[in-house]
Design a protein around this nucleic acid. Structure first.
Lengths: 210, 210
DNA sequence: ACCTGTGTTACGCGG
DNA sequence: CCGCGTAGCACAGGT
């Protein structure tokens, strides 16, 4: 991995066209050939290019031209001055990020503990397929006999209401209702759910569940 | 800006919980306090934290603990060994990225050249407000008298169909139709549009339009 | 502070 | 290889 602090300007052409004016920036080149140009602030790089590119260095007058080309995209860095240039070999890919509290985990846990949503529910199926797409959880209300379509989210926003409504419509049965279950149901989403007669429930994710 | 090559492990807790096992990584700390932990490959950092955090350094046994804390999130880096530690001052924010071929530009251009969508259309309004949100372009079909709700996208995916459907429903007029106009309308989106009687059209972005 | 929408989204997964 | 949906999306803009 190489980190270069340099006074440079950058042009990109591909999915769009961009230009980054001349200014000191930090260029990060990884071992897979991916590049990113970082500015003074923010997590995201200002400019970047994915891993499938070929690198060529040229000299034009008194500045360097670094070109990263792939079949569909092209990133060019015009370097006026290099302030620092450091290389360190990370050797190998290394173990990746371990995530916890993801939507699939929450979905699995809820399928096994569906009573936390509503004690009258019995679990039927996960990822139940409909015309409108797969329903996260399909359950049955034992007191009313209704099929219950459940959309699971970490954070539920308005779009979840429309999504679960489509699933409910796609379910060809007269006795049915829909619910949103999430760690966080946004205020506006609650209002919209109520308006559309979609149930909603916030649950806590179990600590250190597998 | 500071770049640190180190053998470290990282834990994050906030919007989710993650753990990054012990391995050599590159830590990037910017002037606004944002941090990212970069691996051997890929553009995106493995772990990161936004600009609003406070940094504290502690020593635990024989390794350093770097903590980045904000009100809702917490990133902790356990450093076992530092291989390299470089600092360079980029001084100031600098001019940002200049984009071309963005959705707002496309929208503006289409409003002035609406005949490229359909020669029977006349442009009425941009960002026309409805209950469901602002319609990108509102036009009128002079042959049928219909109001035409147009959703402009660079790349149109299925969600655009639902989005424009909501706008169409929100438009309180009997004579109306909806369309998706994009540089790239995805295959599945075409099928869904046809099914829902939403029109769609691919347009080419004009070269070097202002 | 909350919500809405965009992005050269990037990335992984499935066909 | 392409198409699709997700994300600790990040970030900008509006209310």
């Amino acid at each position: 991995m190489r980190t270069v602090f340099a006074l440079c300007e950058v042009t990109y052409s591909g999915r769009g066209d961009t230009f980054l004016p001349l200014h000191p920036r930090m260029i990060l080149i990884k071992n897979d050939g991916s590049v990113s140009i970082n500015g003074y602030s923010k997590v995201k790089p200002l400019n970047y290019m994915g891993p499938k590119s070929t690198f060529t260095e040229e000299k034009e007058n008194d500045h360097l031209i670094w070109a990263f080309d792939s079949s569909k995209e092209n990133l060019t860095i015009r370097i006026h001055e290099i302030f620092a240039d450091n290389y360190f070999d990370l050797q190998e890919e290394g173990p990746g990020l371990v995530r916890d509290g993801t939507e699939p985990q929450l979905q699995k846990w809820l399928s096994e503990n569906i009573e936390v949503i509503d004690e009258n529910l019995v679990f039927l199926e996960r990822e139940f397929n409909t015309e409108a797409g797969p329903v996260d959880l399909l359950a049955k209300d034992v007191t009313t006999g209704e099929f219950v379509v459940i959309e699971v989210k970490r954070v539920a926003m308005s779009s979840a209401v429309y999504q679960v409504s489509r699933y409910l419509d796609a379910l060809d049965h007269p006795n049915k209702r829909a619910m949103i279950v999430a760690l966080d149901v946004r205020p506006k989403t609650r209002v919209l759910s109520d308006k559309k007669s979609i149930g909603w429930k916030e649950v806590s994710f179990p600590v250190h569940c597998q």
